[in-house]
């Protein structure tokens, strides 16, 4: 016994185990993602003070390729000779506003419904579930098409439609989370000690549900930006001349064979933004979801 442990100690003293190095590519990606998001938000906010010609005014011949020299022409011109850079920057406003506002509204409404349903149970819960399941079963494109045929296309219509689209997702997520948390002992104990429903929902359950849902928010925003792009591509999005990334792809699609940059530049912007939002979502969840550490 003694000799054995000596032998073991001897080996351990000599040889350090080889721990594989943890690669840091992920954190570089995350940093790039945040960098891109920050840039997009900054230029969208500063769009009016940037030294750019208006997005509605032609700045030169149509369909010029990207070129050095003038800021307006940096990314070339579109089919009407307007600056693609200016349109991308102004388009960022629409995309970000749509993504953020519809995402947040859906988040708030869905979380409220889901938490109340999961916590209160009974008839209210059955109703919430029925509505959420019905809305999820409805093909999203049909819903949006129906909405835009009833209502005139505008930013507001788009927001209503897209919010409706994401509410059920958040509802279901919040409901499932709330169900799990309300069965936890600390919630039972709080109720036992006479805490009211409001207090339990707001102080005991909500802080636990938020990280999981909040981390999902950027991913939903990404999906909404794509959805807005698809709608604008179908001509059902933001009415011209206001630019949006999807609208720009739509405008350029007929000339894609000869002038691919008309489509690729806005597509690349959408891709980078969506990719960055997804990266940020994953990162936020790992960072802030304490419940993952258990």
């Amino acid at each position: 016994m003694t000799t054995q442990s000596h032998a073991v100690a001897g080996v351990a003293a000599q040889a350090e185990p080889a721990v594989p190095r943890v690669r840091r590519t992920r954190s570089i990606l995350v940093a790039l993602a945040y960098g891109w998001l920050f840039t997009v938000i900054a230029v969208a906010l500063l769009a009016d003070v940037l030294p750019l010609t208006s997005y509605a005014t032609p700045v030169g011949f149509p369909r010029q390729g990207p070129q050095w020299g003038s800021l307006d022409l940096l990314l070339g011109t579109d089919t009407q000779g307007r600056s693609i850079l200016a349109r991308c920057i102004h388009g960022a406003r629409v995309s970000l506003v749509v993504g953020a506002v519809a995402g947040l509204l859906g988040f708030v409404i869905g979380t409220t419904l889901g938490m109340l349903g999961g916590y209160l149970g009974g008839r209210f819960d059955s109703l919430v579930r029925l509505i959420a399941d019905t809305m999820l079963a409805f093909p999203p494109l049909i819903l949006l098409l129906a909405l835009s045929s009833i209502l005139t296309p505008s930013v507001r219509t788009l927001l209503v439609g897209l919010t409706l689209l994401v509410v059920p997702t958040f509802t279901r997520l919040a409901r499932a989370n709330t169900l799990a948390w309300s069965a936890r002992e600390f919630v039972l104990a709080a109720r036992n000690m006479g805490a009211g429903h409001r207090r339990i929902l707001l102080k005991e359950i909500l802080p636990n549900v938020l990280p999981a849902l909040g981390a999902y928010l950027p991913i939903v925003m990404a999906a909404l930006i794509v959805a807005e792009g698809s709608l604008s591509f179908l001509g059902l999005g933001i009415p011209p001349p206001t630019p949006s990334w999807g609208g720009m792809i739509s405008d350029g699609k007929d000339a894609i064979a000869d002038f691919p940059h008309l489509v690729f530049i806005p597509a690349l912007v959408i891709f980078l933004t969506v990719f960055s939002l997804n990266q940020a979502g994953d990162h936020l969840r790992q960072r802030f979801d304490r419940t993952l550490h258990d």
Partner: peptide
């Protein structure tokens, strides 16, 4: 109301799994 005065104050409980019984964000 009267029961709420007893539970927690005069009768307390310790549960099986301490990992689940504490609020992770508090």
């Amino acid at each position: 109301k009267e029961r709420a005065q007893i539970w927690g104050k005069q009768i307390a409980m310790v549960f099986q799994d301490p990992g689940r019984s504490l609020n992770p964000v508090v």
